[in-house]
Design a protein around this nucleic acid. Sequence first.
RNA 1: GCCAGAGUAGCUCAGGGGUAGAGCAGAGGACUCAUAAGCCUUUGGUCGGGGGUUCAAAUCCCUCCUCUGGCACCA
Length: 527
Amino acid sequence: MSKQFYITTAIDYLNGPPHLGHAYEKVITDVIARARRSLGREVFFLTGTDEHGQKVQQAAQAEGTRPQVYADRLAAQYQALAAKLHLSNNDFVRTTQPRHQAVVQAMLRKLHDRGDIYKAPYQGFYSTKEETFLTGKDRRPDGTWDPFWGEVAEVVEENWFFRMSRYQQWLTDYIQADPSFVQPDYRRNEVLGFLRAEKLEDLCISRPVGRLNWGIPIPFDPGYVNYVWFDALTNYYSVPAALGDPAAVQPLAGYLPPPASGPAAPELWPADIHVIGKDILKFHAVYWPIMLQATGAPLPKQVLVHGWWQKDGQKMSKSTGNVVDPLAVIDEWGVDAFRFYVLRELDIGPDGNWTDAGFQARYSAELANGLGNLVNRSLAMLKRYRGGVVPARHDELAPDAGKVVAEVQALLEKNHLQAALVGVWSLVTRANQYVDHTAPFKLAKDPAQAKRLDEVLYNLAETCRVLAVLLWPFLPNTAARIFAQLGLSGAPDQFSAAAWGGLPAGHALGEPAPLFPRKDPPAAAKP
RNA sequence: GCCAGAGUAGCUCAGGGGUAGAGCAGAGGACUCAUAAGCCUUUGGUCGGGGGUUCAAAUCCCUCCUCUGGCACCA
């Protein structure tokens, strides 16, 4: 067994139902996972939910229920989203799972023994009403507190701290030495920028149980629960460790019970890519590598940072109502149309802007009229003129297809998903041009042109097959439907099958049907 | 405020000393296999303002304007 390609999404905090941002991050991660599998790697794709903390505790309280009951209900929504997006995740981690908590506690004990965790007084301004410490940012310019916070008192309480500050220089050197550790480059520059400008402080990692009890207990101090960092970030590591991955288990030797001997443990750690949103960059590019370094565990190879979506040029917010509900879009347009729009519209990195008009334009122009119509016209002609039986191989479009296949492979290996889609569509366009230039519908009227018609029809059908293979990581449903319409069994899930000439002569097609039905706009009301 | 980055066709953006580019949108045309889709042709820009360097600037320099991102817990 060899090291798998291990990729993760951020885990979602259960403070509300899933929205576009959650769905987007999962789609790009899924495409990378599927692409690597298609290119021959064994892949482990992890997503999950972050279930502890004050907001969950309070939300449960407000409903008069226990936090675990509340968390179960919300987590089910996120699992349903994963299914609805057709994610190919191999596991779904929940931070309330015992397998996760055991690893978190093991890591804390090791760091405590090593002296990287210490207890100290924490001084701050505490709002009893909101049950939270306030920071300087919450203070108004004149130094007073907004009445929203109620009575604010200066409080000193003991807490546990992680000795992060001593790793600042090491981390700076590390990131400087490895340009691919944080991507895109401008995010890496941001990290280096504040590592240069600000002094890292030690991290407060606990809360007294009197204030917060919905958390993983600090194993060496029953008066405290763990606060966020060692709980949430550690999910990436706890799942491999719980599965018995030697690279994850070994650094915690003596702190974790030895894994039950069972089926061969997967080799996952270190993660190849953590896909995250720009809002949690610092935690993943600063806190997390330091936590791992202190633990003596290898660091993930890359933190890949995506941007946020706006709607119609404005920040999405529940109060203004300009939100995009991914589930509603999928119900109306299909999951592949949703995946296509977010992948084609926005490159990984910058912020994007969702517009319904833009969505419909891409659906209509690129999916229905471009890809869908190409497959439909190609297969319909093969059915009509040749009874749906594939003619002898002919290679007229092979060079064009081969060029696109090579280009898309190179782009997939660099996770340039948007550019890869542009590349795939260049083959769609090429094939549509080919139909017009060769005019098989005219050839069909002249019996003397029968051989030429065979050649053209083969090139078109084979191009459709190649397209299915190329599209698999992005639009798995559509790729599978193209295969089915070509009468091919199995899934187009191996990139090597994109090599020209896979359709055998004499093979019988399935039944052609539009892949993306035209959506006529509702009858425009004329004034 | 500080640190990055960006202003190029109606829209989204590429180009980075030598005759302004692509996709979409718009206009026109020939066709008819197909989801009235597709294909071909085409209109359109003093490259944010001003100054400078140069034989030559969208490109390099200065300056101003505007916008965006980041500056420690919202995907």
